[in-house]
Design a binder for these strands. Structure first.
Length: 359
DNA sequence: TTAAATGATTCATG
DNA sequence: CATGAATCATTTAA
């Protein structure tokens, strides 16, 4: 009975054999899977142990837009990444093990059955192939979710926008001081940036960012910055006035000088008249000592600024734009401040002018 | 909780 | 490559 059944089964198998062979297509390298693999490899999740991971992370950080010299968050990021990697590897191993176990189990089963029905090695191979495909699809899901996790991690840690901190009050003070005292050409040189960065304990890139933002935002709505401009211009003007006065050896500068702590809004320049005259003489070239040559221009800027500001300061700034920022043409854009346009007299016209109060 | 301020990024440009 | 413009995401002020 048994041999008869066996032979019948053999016959059936002969007939179906072809169709089985036909259905034996080489599974094509799934592009989706390859993409995931590549990505995991690139992120250092599926690569070799440590080295690849940090290198890839560094490369990713560099690629995602420079200036990531933050080391604290970076190590944090790396820690999370290794955590992901561990989970990924343990899961992967688990699946692999399960796959192997299942495969051997099935093979044992088939071997056992081969005593009662005909089973070719080809068939066993095919069975194994099916099992592997099933498990690899599970692996793909694992890879996919891992990729998602990595992406989230990256956007969380490598995108600095998410962990923005405001600069210290002092830092913005320094930056603003520079900005408003170089308002005619607020483009700090590389050295100046470094200096500012050092003073503010921020990076050069941050200084560049700050100036980029400041320029664009200042230009966009000058009215909004008038008060600030006055404040800082006045602040630096006080020091500038002293500096210029010292340079010109104008003897009568012995004011108590509250440095720059308060000095809000109302700027009572000690003797603005004299100061202004000094400026005129400076600009008029009647002064030849010029030890201060390089700095003078910026101070001139500052002073002219504050003077201009004073001109239209105390009528409501609702309409604003009553002060045309020198060197800032109508269309906007500072356009290299080549010609400082000689110190024009400070628009004496409407209302009170340059900081008198005391007379 | 919403609006404004602010630092950073992205993208186009010259 | 530095800058301007637009935009994002967060912090701070209202």
């Amino acid at each position: 009975m048994k041999p008869a059944l066996f032979s019948v089964l053999c016959e059936i198998k002969e007939k179906t054999g072809l169709s089985i062979r036909g259905a034996q297509e080489e599974d094509p390298p799934d592009p989706q899977l390859m993409r995931l693999d590549n990505m995991l490899l690139a992120e250092g999740v599926s690569g070799p142990e440590k080295g690849g991971g940090s290198a890839a992370a560094a490369a990713a950080a560099a690629a995602s837009g420079g200036s990531s010299d933050n080391s604290i968050e970076h190590s944090d990021y790396r820690a999370k990444l290794t955590q992901i990697r561990q989970i990924y590897h343990t899961e992967l191993e688990k699946y692999e093990q399960a796959c192997n176990e299942f495969t051997t189990h099935v093979m044992n089963l088939l071997r056992e059955q081969s005593r009662t029905r005909p089973i070719s090695p080809k068939e066993i191979e095919r069975m194994v192939g099916i099992i592997h495909r099933k498990f690899s699809s599970i692996q793909m899901q694992l890879k996919q979710s891992t990729c998602e996790a990595v992406m989230i991690l990256r956007s969380r840690f490598l995108d600095a926008r998410r962990k923005r901190r405001n600069f210290s009050k002092q830092a913005t003070e320094i930056l603003n001081e520079y900005f408003y005292s170089h308002l005619s050409n607020p483009y700090p040189s590389e050295e100046a940036k470094e200096e500012l960065a050092k003073k503010c304990s921020i990076t050069v890139s941050q200084v560049s960012n700050w100036f980029g933002n400041k320029r664009i935002r200042y230009k966009k709505n000058i009215g909004k910055f008038q008060e600030e401009a006055n404040l800082y211009a006045a602040k630096t003007a006080v020091t500038a006035a002293h500096a210029v006065a010292a340079a010109v050896q104008n003897n009568q500068t012995n004011s108590p000088t509250t440095p720059n702590s308060g000095s809000s809004g109302s700027f009572n320049l000690p003797n603005s008249g004299d100061m202004f005259m000094n400026m005129q003489s400076l600009n008029g070239d009647s002064y030849q000592g010029s030890q201060v040559g390089a700095n003078v221009q910026s101070q001139v800027d500052t002073l002219r600024h504050v003077i201009n500001q004073t001109g239209g300061y105390n009528d409501g700034l609702g309409g604003n734009s009553l002060y045309s920022p020198h060197n800032l043409n109508a269309n906007g854009g500072w356009q290299d401040a080549t010609t400082p346009s000689s110190v024009t007299s400070p628009t004496e016209g409407p209302g009170s002018v340059h900081s008198d109060t005391s007379n």
